[in-house]
Design a protein around this nucleic acid. Structure first.
Lengths: 198, 198
DNA sequence: TGTATTTGCCTAAACCCTATAGGCAAATTA
DNA sequence: TAATTTGCCTATAGGGTTTAGGCAAATACA
């Protein structure tokens, strides 16, 4: 019985590819075993179980994505940085839908703490640095940006924006412009009363 | 063999409850059969298959949610309407996490066309009526609002906002205020160049 | 280099979920 | 009351997960 040379890493990479091709929830140990022409039970020497495999794919995706976002925003500021940041997420989601879906997988707290999740949070705050927000506004803004981008990406992936004639790219640009404008109002004018006009 | 009196409707309602308790992807025909103390095969007389059941739960959730949102925004305008709209979605997601998750289930195009999805789109546009946006800005704004609210709700549900001391309710209010302010800039000043300051 | 140990992949088996076919009895209709 | 429809059943097959235990290939060590 020749050995195929499985490792947790190879399984994780193959799992990530399968996720992109068939969807993250189609990633099963059975499918993976088939793709390596190996019996399912053999995989249990390398990953603890199905959940463990998904966790590993999630960690891989979080790292990859953080690397991309990090490279995209390097040397940029203001609207430029904001757009690069947003595009990095969206492009990744479009190129790697399964991996992007994996980044939504609920990790165990200890695992999450050791993941690239922290880098994402830092990157988000780095983008806002140029807008000079004070706490707690900065936290509010981090949450809002995360919400908009993640929301847009998932609705777009679900096909929610393909019913009308308006191009999705236009709405995306409009959204980034709007967020930039919004954040800039905070830069120069920091009282809520004035900002909201109430 | 006494009959239990199953119907597609009863299965759908029980499925929705199960979704809220255990998660939408824990909704299985097996679990449902157990809860009715009936054999699994019996369910196939009432629903075509597992996918059909999930579709029915999705349609139920979309209707319920549209009813709630519709009632919430009735008689309101401006920021008031915007907040009522947003809160209706968020409250529903918090009270019925499984049903809210169901609203993200990908429906077949014909089914989606006959669903309450259209009502949601109309409600969204109704909110914007008070801000007097022209096309295609209105469409952009509809997409942005959908993105923010859906994104916020799903990130919040995933626990993404429970790592810092800042209260999630505050960020939510801040976000709604920000969106209101943003939309109001469009009301009085409609050229992109001026709005973004580029 | 030969032997001991570890490690990788295997078979076997149990459990759960989905789905179809075909049967019998309860409910409905005539 | 008889005929028909309908609801729930048993049986069966297929796919995914997971554990236990075995044999052989790779590795370590004398």
């Amino acid at each position: 019985m020749a050995r195929v040379g499985l490792t947790a890493e190879r399984l994780t990479r193959a799992g990530a590819e399968l996720a992109d091709e068939a969807g993250f929830d189609q990633v099963t140990l059975s499918a993976l075993a088939r793709s390596f022409d190996v019996k399912v039970a053999s995989l249990y020497s390398h990953v603890r179980n199905s959940h463990d495999l998904k966790t590993r794919i999630t960690l891989l995706a979080l790292e990859e994505l953080a690397d991309r976002v990090s490279a995209a925003v390097a040397g940029r500021a203001g609207r430029d940085a904001l757009a690069a940041f947003a595009d990095a997420y969206r492009d990744y989601a479009r190129e790697h839908p399964g991996r992007y879906a994996a980044t939504r997988f609920a990790l165990a707290p200890e695992v999450a703490a050791a993941s690239a999740g922290g880098r994402h949070a830092q990157l988000s705050r780095a983008i806002l640095r140029g807008y000079h927000l004070r706490e707690p506004d900065q936290t509010h803004a981090v949450r809002m940006l995360g919400s908009v981008f993640h929301g847009y990406i998932s609705l777009e992936a679900a096909g929610s924006f393909s019913h009308t004639a308006v191009d999705s790219q236009e709405s995306w640009d409009w959204t980034i412009d709007s967020l930039d404008a919004l954040l800039r109002t905070w830069t120069t004018d920091t009282t809520t009363a004035d900002r909201t006009g109430r």
